[in-house]
Amino acid sequence: MPNARSCLVALLALTALQCQARDYRYSDAHLHYVDFFQESEGMQRLVKEMDAGGIDHVMISGIPVAKKWHEDEPKRPRYYAGDDAGAYWFSATDVFVAAAVKALPAEQRQRFHPFLTGFNPNDKNADAHIRQMLELDPGLWQGLGEVFTRHDDLTALTYGETPRANNEAMTRIYHLAAEYDLPVMLHANITSKREKNPLYLGEIEEALRNHPHVRFIWAHAGTSMEIHRHQEKLDFLLPTLTRMLHDYPNLYIDLSWTVLRPYLLDAKGIPDPKWLALVEKHPDRFMLGSDVVGRFDDLGKYLASFRPFLDALSDDVAKKVARDNFLAVLPRKGAGVAP
Rank of each mutant, 00 (worst) to 15 (best):
Asn197Ser: 10
Ile190Trp: 07
Asp266Phe: 02
Pro121Cys: 08
Ile173Asp: 10
Asp123Phe: 11
Ala106Asn: 05
Phe90Tyr: 08
Arg209Ile: 05
Leu208Asp: 12
Leu265His: 06
Asn122Val: 14
Asn122Trp: 11
Glu205Met: 06
Asp28Lys: 00
Leu260Val: 09
Gln142Gly: 15
Ala99Phe: 01
Asp324Arg: 13
Glu41Ile: 07
Leu234Gln: 12
Asp153Phe: 13
Leu234Asp: 08
Thr149Leu: 06
Trp141Glu: 07
Leu46Tyr: 06
Asp35Pro: 01
Ile217Asn: 03
Leu134Arg: 14
Leu313Asp: 15
Asp127Met: 01
Ser224Lys: 03
Lys333Ser: 07
Pro183Leu: 06
Pro283Trp: 02
Pro74Gln: 04
His282Phe: 14
Ala277Met: 10
Asp266Glu: 08
Met50Ala: 09
Gly269Gln: 01
Lys268Tyr: 00
Leu31Asp: 10
Thr162Lys: 09
Ala103Trp: 10
Ser314Tyr: 05
Ser27Gly: 06
Thr117Trp: 02
Gly54Phe: 06
Asp28Gln: 01
Ala87Pro: 04
Leu234Val: 13
Gly145Gln: 07
Ser61Leu: 06
Gly160Tyr: 04
Leu241Ile: 13
Thr15Val: 13
Ala10Glu: 14
Met133Lys: 08
Ala318His: 07
Ser27Phe: 03
Leu14Phe: 03
Tyr88Asn: 01
Glu146Phe: 00
Thr171His: 14
Gln18Leu: 15
His57Glu: 04
Ser290Gln: 02
Ile204Lys: 11
Val147Met: 07
Met185Tyr: 02
Phe296Asp: 03
Glu179Tyr: 05
Ala219Asp: 04
Leu255Lys: 12
His30Ala: 04
Pro2Ser: 04
Val58Phe: 00
Lys67Ile: 13
Asp297Trp: 13
Leu310Thr: 00
Ile253Asp: 09
Thr171Gln: 14
Thr242Lys: 14
Ile270Leu: 12
Leu303Asp: 01
Arg209Pro: 06
Val9Ala: 14
Pro249Arg: 03
Ile130His: 05
Lys48Ser: 14
Glu206Ser: 15
Val292Ile: 00
Ala277Leu: 11
Met43Gln: 02
Arg78Asn: 09
Asp235His: 12
Trp89Ser: 10
Gly269Arg: 02
Pro262His: 08
Asp153Met: 10
Met59Cys: 10
Lys268Met: 00
Met50Thr: 05
Val34Trp: 08
Pro271Asp: 14
Leu313Val: 15
Leu31His: 04
Pro183Val: 13
Met225Trp: 11
Asp84Tyr: 06
Glu41Gly: 14
Arg78Glu: 13
Val184Gly: 11
Thr240Leu: 07
Gly334Leu: 04
Asn166Arg: 03
